[in-house]
């Protein structure tokens, strides 16, 4: 499928997909962690300065 240069083509695509997949998963994990931490802080009664002004 990738011809006689498959040993170069396949690693190029595999590495690109792997690196981008790691970036996507990392960003999503950080988002969930921070959202959970923010919710926990708000549940504990800590408010944002902008919210207190209202």
């Amino acid at each position: 499928m990738f011809g006689k240069y498959a040993s170069f083509v396949v690693p190029a695509y595999a590495l690109s997909m792997l690196a981008l997949a790691i970036v996507i998963v990392r960003i999503r994990v950080i988002y969930r962690q921070r959202l959970a931490e923010l919710n926990a802080l708000e549940m504990a009664g800590a408010g944002r300065r902008s919210a207190k002004k209202k």
Partner: peptide, 26 residues
């Protein structure tokens, strides 16, 4: 893909700053 990931990362950065502000206020 970059613009999607950039918006997602910006969202993370803003959440991180909010958490930091709330921790300092606490």
């Amino acid at each position: 893909l970059f613009f999607t990931l950039h918006f997602m990362s910006m969202r993370n950065e803003i959440l991180g700053r909010r958490i930091r502000t709330m921790k300092i206020a606490n």
